[in-house]
Amino acid sequence: MTYCVGMVLDKGLVFMSDTRTNAGLDNISTFRKMTVWEAPGERVITLMSAGNLATTQAVVSLLDERSKSPSERVPTVLASPSMFQVARTIAETMREVIEQHGDEGQRSDSPFGATLIVGGQIAGSPPRLFMIYPEGNFIEAGEDTPFFQIGEMKYGRPILVRAYDPAMAFEDAIKLLLVSFDSTLKANLTVGAPFDYHCYEADSLRIGPHGRIGMEDRYFQSVSKDWGDALKDALDSLPAFSFPKKGS
């Protein structure tokens, strides 16, 4: 399984993805699920993937190959004129890959299906964030939906809904995402560290702060422990529950 989050802030875009892939509890491995393309001063595009690993690998490989050898007949992520067209190009590439795998078509329950998050900025337009569904259609983040999750999203969503603030700094956004990811991996063994992240600053048109955070990272360990302790303290501070008295 997978857990990835893309988030829109006033300052720019923030991305984080886990790296766990598995075919059972006795066969666990890691694989990078985040890809970043950059044309310095012109565009930066970040893609994250969840779903069938063969499909997502093939999609990224095709996008890479076509970007290095552009053709007028086939649009590429480094030549598309807008982020909307970038999302469309990626969606069409995924549709092409899935159709090559068999006769499953573009169904969300296809064994070759995948869900993607793509975001970035092209010079002359604002940063934009999209989620691409297994069927090949996609939606854009906005004021009502300022972040997207793909993969195993339910465990990490409550903290995002409660604590997200578009005005937060990148450092605070990474802290929030680490809490979300920590909650997810504690509830689901198919999600795991290390976590890849990328913070893109609006109008910079360059790759921003990025890196990988592992289970051994001292800051992550501190966030995990302190968050757990804070939850226990908050629970203890709530008013005690009382059973109704008999006859009342």
Rank of each mutant, 00 (worst) to 15 (best):
S224D: 07
E38F: 05
I150P: 03
R128W: 02
P70G: 05
K245V: 15
S108R: 07
M83W: 05
Y133H: 08
K225P: 00
I213T: 01
Y200H: 08
I159Y: 08
G51P: 02
T21G: 11
M83D: 03
D144S: 14
V179I: 08
P81Q: 10
Q57Y: 01
P239G: 05
F138N: 13
P126G: 04
E104Y: 15
T46Y: 02
M16Q: 08
R95S: 14
I213W: 00
C4W: 06
L189F: 09
L176W: 10
T76M: 05
F195I: 10
F195D: 09
E96I: 12
I139M: 09
V36S: 07
G24L: 07
A167Y: 01
S17Y: 03
R32L: 06
L160C: 06
R128L: 11
V118Q: 04
A240Y: 03
D165A: 09
A114T: 11
G113K: 15
T46H: 03
L129F: 03
S82T: 15
R32M: 05
A187W: 07
A50D: 04
S69P: 00
Q57M: 03
I117R: 01
Y164F: 15
A187L: 06
R73G: 14
Q121M: 01
L63C: 09
K246D: 07
P75H: 12
T115D: 02
N22T: 12
G105I: 08
E42C: 03
E201C: 04
A167K: 12
I122P: 06
T145R: 10
M48R: 07
L177Q: 14
E38S: 13
V191I: 10
E99L: 15
D172Q: 14
A39V: 15
M168E: 15
S183T: 12
V118W: 05
F138K: 08
E96T: 15
A39W: 10
A167D: 10
I213E: 00
S80E: 09
G102V: 13
Q149N: 12
E171L: 02
T30R: 04
L177V: 10
S71Y: 02
R157Q: 14
I132Q: 13
K246Q: 08
S49I: 04
R157H: 11
L178I: 11
E38L: 09
Y155W: 15
E140P: 04
R212W: 00
G156D: 14
L25T: 14
E72W: 02
D217V: 01
K33Y: 05
P81R: 11
G113T: 13
Y197V: 04
F220N: 01
P127R: 06
Y133Q: 07
A54E: 04
E92G: 06
T30P: 00
I98K: 14
S69D: 11
Q149V: 03
R218H: 06
P166E: 13
P81W: 09
E140A: 06
G228A: 11
F112Y: 12
F130P: 07
E65R: 04
P134K: 10
P134T: 09
G41P: 02
A58W: 01
R157D: 11
G113R: 15
V44T: 07
G192E: 06
